[in-house]
Amino acid sequence: MPEAGLSAGATPLKLTAKDFKSDQEVRWCPGCGDYAILAAMQSFLPDLGIPRERIAFVSGIGCSSRFPYYLNTYGMHSIHGRAPAIATGLSVSRPDLSVWVVTGDGDALSIGGNHLIHALRRNVNLKILLFNNKIYGLTKGQYSPTSELGKITKSTPVGSTDSPFNPLSLALGAEASFVARTIDSDRKHLQSVLRQAAEHQGSAFVEIYQNCNIFNDGAFEVLKDPQTRDEYVIRLEHGQPITFGKDGEFCVTHPPGAFGLRVRPTAEVSPDEIVVHDETVAEPAYAFALSRLPESDLRHTPIGVFRDVARPVYDDLVRAQLDSAKEKVTRSADEELAALLGSGDTWTIL
C-alpha cells in the first residue's frame, strides 16, 4: 500500500477556493453552466477538510469531463464512459483518498451506462456528479439519453424518437444508497448537496441540472425563473412536510391505495396527509416515487437529497477480506511466496 508520505508534509488544512484552482485556462463556452459548478466546487472543497493531495477527480469524455483539469487536486481525464470503472479501481485500492467522478448525461447514461449502474450496485465509495444538460455539447449538438422525445437536434432533424432516461430513477433502480438532484445556478443548494454527498459512505449520485447555452439553452429555465420556479421546483428538506409554491400552496401526498405520490393543493388536504420527507427510508420505492413526480415540462421537479441510506460499502468489504487474510500471515512475504510455490504435491531430485 503506497502511503506516499501521507503523514509527512501533508498540506495544511486551512485552504481557500484559490488553493483548488489549477493553473489551466478554463475553456468552456462563455456562459456555460459548468463555470458555476466549478466555482461552487472550488469554494466548497476547502470545507471538506481533506488535504488537496488526498482528493482525486476522475472524469470521462464530454464538456463536463474537462472538470479535473481546473482543480488543483489529483485528476484523470479518462475515456468516454469509463470513469466509474477507473475510479472504482482507484478507490478500492486507495481507501485513504476522496474519489470523485465527474460525468455527463451522454458519458454516464449512454456509452458508460453499464459502469455507472455497477458502481452504484456495489456501493463503491465514489461521489458521482452527473452534469445533465440533456444534449451532447462537445460533439456539437446531438440528442442525449436524457433529451426529451421529439427533440430536434443535428442528428434528429425531425425530432428524436428515443424516450429519455430519468437518471434518478435509474440510479435508484441500480440500488444507489445516495441520490440527489441540484441545479448549477443555485450555489447554496449545490454546495449543501455536495457536502452531504461527501459525507455519505458509499456511492453518492448527484444529478446537477446544467445549462448548455450553445446547444440547449434554457433547458432548465423554468426551474430558475423567479416567475415560474416556485411552482416548478419542489425543495426537499429532510424531516419537513413537502410543500411548495410561493406560499406553500401545493403539497405532495401519498393517496391511500394508489402507487406513487401526487401533487395536491395544500388547502384541499389535511396536514397529516402531506408527506414528510425522509431521506433515510430503507424502501427505495419512496425515493423512486419522488423521482417520478416531474411532468414532461419540468413542473414538480424535486431538488435536494432523495435518498441517503447506509449500506455496506464495497471498498470496506474488499479491504476487510484482505485484512483478515493478512492477519494470518506469520512469515515474511518471501517465505509466504516460497510456501505458495511449493504447495501441493512436490518431489525432490537430488
Binding site: 503506497p2 472504482t88 479501481g89 478500492v92 485500492s93 486507495r94 500471515v329 512475504a333 509466504e336 505458495l340
Partner: peptide, 28 residues
C-alpha cells in the same frame, strides 16, 4: 489475498481493464 492481491470480477471486459488502470494510477 494475504499477499495483498485484490481481485475484482468486473461488470465487463472494459471495466476490468479500467479497474486495473485506476489501481495502477493509485500505485498498485
Amino acid at each position: 489475498k494475504k499477499f495483498g492481491v485484490t481481485t475484482v470480477q468486473a461488470e465487463d471486459e472494459i471495466a476490468a481493464v479500467g479497474l486495473a488502470l485506476g489501481a495502477s494510477y493509485g500505485g498498485a
